[in-house]
């Protein structure tokens, strides 16, 4: 149940006065509530837990982390 999964926000709309979105997880599309991520924009990746987006993934940070690990990988391959 804690298995929040990231998916791409492909549409934002209103439903019963709540900000909602459609999230695409690699082809499977479901609905999620966006009230907790009011800054969300279409095209961003949201982390959705039990029907609620709890964060918008920061692409810049993702790139940073990956670059650091990539360096490690290259160092290892160079040995």
């Amino acid at each position: 149940m804690c298995l929040a999964v990231p998916g791409k926000l492909i549409e934002i709309f209103d439903e019963a006065s709540l900000k909602m979105g459609r999230i695409d997880y690699n082809g499977t599309v479901t609905k999620a509530c966006l009230e907790y991520v009011p800054e969300a924009r279409v095209g961003q990746y949201a982390l959705v837990h039990a029907g609620f987006a709890i964060s918008i993934l920061d692409e810049e940070e993702a790139r940073h982390s990956l670059a650091a690990w990539q360096e490690l990988k290259e160092k290892m391959e160079g040995l």
Partner: peptide, 9 residues
């Protein structure tokens, strides 16, 4: 039920 992740919902 749930932890702090489910409470907001």
């Amino acid at each position: 039920v749930g932890f702090e992740t489910t409470a907001p919902g």
